[in-house]
Nucleic acid binder design. Structure first.
Lengths: 158, 158
DNA sequence: CCCAAATCAATTGTGCACAACTTGACTGTG
DNA sequence: CACAGTCAAGTTGTGCACAATTGATTTGGG
């Protein structure tokens, strides 16, 4: 029992202690899934967080503030400010100080940004296919994950 | 229908389009869970990836090479080299070129590293509790996630 | 009205992740 | 033995994440 590693299907060596931990499964799955996104999003010139920001902005008629985006994505200005600056540099969004409250910055898609968002339409299906799971499994997985996230955020407030 | 955002329990605003995507659920849950780890691991002076490396090393009698660690954790030398350098700087591991094959670097826990690993014993329970899920749910979640990860890695080889 | 507290975005600094490249070491074939 | 090809680890550069701080603005209580 001096060797606790196992070798399975994919040729990947993994560790039993590691495999027992949900956290590692979550960490590994999250990175594996962004690996699936990467080549697809590369074709659009986007990173995964940038893709998420465009998704949110595309659902709104009006502009979103940085903090509103942050609430949606659970990200702070330290992450979003440079990301938005890059999106602006790429001509996909515009940023301007709110007239009503000069602390706020309003972010909005440009015509080019809206055009790109159209091209994003079939990304979810492509990715879902790559997971190799049935739709029902994906829905169940998503709901469990959302439950975990909400439980954690709820407990943090107390 | 000009506002597609909803407000629920925790006071967090979220977006319907976002919530439909498994990938976002995975991304959000992964970061929420590392948020749970952070304060616990801070007390040990570790980051989450550093904690994972110590977990793997603690399961082995012998030293591990950088690439063996990379296979376990699905990380490359670009991530591991600086991380291991920091662990070495903290006195938790030692690194040395393999005598048999000088391309390889062997990594091993120091006495201090093994002592820290003892103190890591109850981290998983603390974290599992914070997720607010029953053990059976956690096991099911973990297995689904592992399945997703393995499916993705398997498809990437073809 | 005034000012202390709160709010918002940006910045700074640290530490992952990952692609692309470099350097040094091994391996197999002729 | 030579040497092309391969392999391991490290380095460089980009882009998140997140803590902590800064600076500008707004808000609310006295």
């Amino acid at each position: 029992m001096h060797n606790l590693t196992v070798r399975y299907g994919s040729g990947v060596t993994d560790d039993l202690v590691l495999r027992r931990q949900v956290c590692f499964a979550l960490y590994a799955a999250s990175r594996a899934l962004t690996d699936v996104y990467r080549p697809i999003l590369d074709g659009l010139g986007l990173t995964y967080p940038q893709y998420l920001v465009l998704l949110v902005l595309g659902e709104r008629d009006e502009a979103a503030t940085v903090s509103a985006l942050g609430e949606c994505l659970h990200l702070d200005s330290g992450t979003l400010s440079p990301l938005l600056k890059r999106l602006e540099g790429a001509g996909l969004v515009v940023r301007r100080r709110s007239a009503a409250d000069e602390r706020r910055v309003e972010v909005e898609l440009t015509a080019q940004g809206r055009a790109l968002r159209e091209r994003m339409a079939d990304v979810p299906q492509q990715v879902a296919r790559a997971t190799g799971l049935a739709t029902a499994d994906l829905v169940a997985l998503r709901d469990t994950l959302t439950r975990v996230t909400e439980t954690i955020h709820r407990q943090k407030e107390q």
